[in-house]
Design a binder for these strands. Structure first.
Ligand SMILES: [Mn+2]
Ligand SMILES: [Mn+2]
Ligand SMILES: [Mn+2]
Ligand SMILES: [Mn+2]
Lengths: 219, 219
DNA sequence: ATATTATTTTAGATATGTCTAAATTTTAGC
DNA sequence: GCTAAAATTTAGACATATCTAAAATAATAT
């Protein structure tokens, strides 16, 4: 149906729409996909012809309903495979993203639904991200990034924004994992770094790290 | 490392070398891969430059050691994924080949070795084909095709040469499965068709079908 | 409001993998 | 051994997906 490149662009646009609102810009996509803006323009034209995005020259793009559904199907596959790798093959959560980037492009509705059943219909992937169902329905996880938390507030780490090996290894090293209760004990105005406290230890994290940690039950 | 197209050619050449002896011809490869001979020539040149095949113009190709090992690694992945699909996801043996054609190209040594362990190191895939180990070692299954059996001889069906959905569905319909004991009760000289007998029924199969059924303990 | 800068698009090139049609080489028939 | 047929290769084209450099457009700053 769609090529791997097309599927990857749709996924990227989906995520960017979520993070930055609609009308995603060419440069933003190029940044995320590590390609040049000219390549992005070429692809946006192709996607527009296939009715996967609405594209107006110089104005950025927006996913159509078909585009959004296609993106969600790829995301569903990605996250189910990540669950499989962690739960069944005993991978660590920092090792699965790159492999899932490949597996998500395997074409077979039956395969992914059987995998879903085998895993007993998980709702979240190893990084705390919700798994869309067969129809592309996805639970909105209204979690809060640490950068939106006030001094002294607490919450439970439920997801990470960045699933890269490097970031997750950093969290491993700092002894941070999903489910941990965190408290913001200081915010440094100079560099916007955060001092946080868990049940077992305290640590300082940069603003960049803080942005990628998502919490629930923030009080 | 290698592209999907390259991996597929190597696999095809490996199988053809086995079935027809070395120095595989351009047309033979084109037939198997459903491409044109001119495309095959182009690819053979590329594979030769990468030292995966020995290629002499107009003389066909032969895999190098690297080429053979690469082919075996892809075959290992293909067959392990087929095991996974049948044993864990409850696919039928006639549904898995096409999906495995995609999964076999996923790149990760760790993944395939963890999958191997998860499946408890199977020796045979759902079609009776041996699974190469990590080093590319493969058990030679000296099975006999029905076309090489004498009138009145018996044997146990242990593998099929053709793993296509159409052929396996034909076997399902005819109530033939791996493990069945067969006896050749008649050979029709006119069209080389075979009359065979199982524990439960008798049937007539064409020479083409007979060729694709592999037996052991032939007496 | 105009100039400068940043963003985006176009034009033209490259790499992969395929094709058709034509040329070349090998094989087989006599 | 020569000729016709078959097999193989070459030449040139096309589709996808990427790039660089240049041109066009939009945003911003004075
Ligand atoms: Mn991921
Ligand atoms: Mn994930
Ligand atoms: Mn197969
Ligand atoms: Mn098989």
């Amino acid at each position: 149906m769609y090529s791997q490149a097309e599927e990857n662009y749709l996924k990227t646009i989906y995520v960017l729409e979520k993070d930055f609102g609609d009308d995603v810009s060419t440069n933003l996509i190029a940044g995320k996909t590590k390609t040049k803006p000219s390549s992005v323009t070429d692809m946006l034209k192709k996607l527009a012809i296939k009715d996967l995005v609405l594209y107006k020259k110089y104005q950025g793009v927006k996913l159509t309903e078909t585009g959004r559904l296609t993106a969600l199907k790829v995301i569903r596959k990605h996250r189910l495979w990540e669950c499989f790798l962690v739960q069944k093959l005993n991978f660590n959560w920092d090792e699965v993203h790159e492999i899932a980037e490949q597996l998500e492009h395997v074409k077979s509705e039956l395969l992914i639904n059987k995998l879903d059943a085998f895993l007993r219909f998980p709702k979240l992937d190893p990084h705390g991200d919700p798994i869309p169902d067969e129809q592309g329905r996805i639970i909105k996880n209204q979690s809060t990034s640490i950068i939106d938390m006030k001094l002294g507030s607490t919450g439970t780490l439920v997801a990470v924004k960045d699933s890269s090996e490097t970031f997750l290894r950093y969290l491993n090293k700092k002894n941070l994992a999903l489910g941990d209760k965190l408290k913001v004990i200081d915010i440094e105005p100079y560099d916007n770094s955060y001092h946080i406290e868990t049940k077992t230890h305290r640590l300082v994290i940069t603003n960049n790290v803080a942005e990628n940690l998502l919490l629930k039950n923030v009080k």
